[in-house]
C-alpha cells in the first residue's frame, strides 16, 4: 500500500517545527512503527536525517511509544498503543498525519520525541508505599477482597505513556495521577498514607504545569490501557476529604 505521511519535524526543543510530507510503501501486516522503520531506512539511504520517534518494547507495555496519528494519541484503535497498531487499520492511498504528544508539561526533544519526566516527578512526590526492603509481613497476612485487588490492578495497569495528557484539550494529567492514587489507596498497604499522598501528588501535578480536568473524557477514550475516568472522580473526593479533614 502507498501512503502519504505528514510528519512533524523539529530539530530540537527550541527550533521551530513544521509538517513535512513523505511517501512510503507499506505492507498491511506491518506494525505502524515498522512502517516508520521503512521510512527511516529510505531516508538513511538518501543520506537524509531519519525521523526521531520514541519506542522500545513494541508490545504495548513499556509506554515509550507516543505518536498522535490523525489527531488521536496512539491512533484510531481503542485500547491499543502505537506499537500494536498495524497497517491493516489503514487503506492504500491514505494520508496519515503523525504529530508528537502536545502539552506544555511535555516539551518536544526532537521531531516526535517528547520529555515526560514530569510524570516521574509526580510519582516521586508520593506515588509509593513507604516500606523499606525487609520490613514486610507475610503476603497473606492481610486478605484483600478479590474485587478490590482487581480494581487496584485496573488502575495500576497504567503504562505512563501520557496519552491522557496528549488527548486532553486542557493538557491535564489527572488520569495518570488519579490512577496511581487509586491503585495504592484501594489496597490496605497503601491506605495508610492515602490522605497525605493525594495532597502531595496533586500539588506536584499542578507544579508541573498540567492543565485542569474538565471531565471531557478524552483521556479515558484514548488510554491504551482503558483506565477509567472514575479514578479522577475518586481522587477529587479523596483530595477534598483530605484537605477538609486532615489536621495538618
Amino acid at each position: 500500500m502507498k501512503l502519504t505521511l505528514k510528519i512533524w519535524r523539529q530539530k530540537n526543543q527550541n527550533a521551530k517545527g513544521s509538517i513535512e510530507s513523505y511517501q512510503v510503501e507499506a505492507d498491511e501486516h506491518m506494525s505502524f512503527l515498522e512502517m516508520l522503520d521503512v521510512l527511516n531506512e529510505q531516508l538513511i539511504s538518501e543520506k537524509k536525517e531519519p525521523v526521531a520517534f520514541a519506542h522500545d518494547c513494541r508490545e504495548g507495555i513499556c509506554g515509550t511509544c507516543n505518536l498522535v496519528i490523525n489527531g488521536k494519541p496512539h491512533g484510531p484503535q481503542t485500547g491499543t498503543t502505537t506499537c500494536q497498531l498495524h497497517m491493516r487499520a489503514f487503506k492504500d492511498g491514505d494520508t496519515i498525519f503523525i504529530e508528537p504528544f502536545r502539552a506544555k508539561a511535555f516539551p518536544i526533544i526532537k521531531d516526535l520525541v517528547v520529555d515526560r519526566s514530569s510524570f516521574d516527578r509526580i510519582i516521586q512526590s508520593g506515588g509509593y508505599v513507604s516500606v523499606n526492603t525487609g520490613q514486610a509481613q507475610d503476603g497473606n497476612a492481610i486478605p484483600i477482597e478479590g474485587d478490590v485487588a482487581a480494581k487496584a490492578f485496573d488502575s495500576a495497569t497504567c503504562i505512563g505513556c501520557g496519552a491522557c495528557v496528549a488527548a486532553c484539550p486542557n493538557g491535564s494529567a489527572m488520569l495518570f495521577t488519579s490512577a496511581k492514587v487509586q491503585h495504592l489507596g484501594l489496597l490496605p498497604q497503601g491506605k495508610v498514607e492515602h490522605e497525605t499522598r493525594v495532597q502531595k501528588m496533586v500539588a506536584q501535578m499542578d507544579k508541573e504545569g498540567f492543565g485542569m480536568c474538565s471531565n471531557v473524557g478524552a483521556c479515558e477514550a484514548e488510554c491504551p490501557k482503558e483506565i477509567s475516568i472514575e479514578n479522577i472522580a475518586s481522587m477529587n473526593m479523596s483530595f477534598l476529604g483530605s484537605v477538609l479533614t486532615k489536621e495538618d
Partner: peptide
C-alpha cells in the same frame, strides 16, 4: 488550560 496546551493537532481532533 490554554497555557497547558498551546498547540493543537493538525491531523484531526481527539475524543470528547
Amino acid at each position: 488550560n490554554k497555557k497547558a496546551k498551546t498547540v493543537g493537532y493538525k491531523g484531526g481532533s481527539s475524543s470528547g
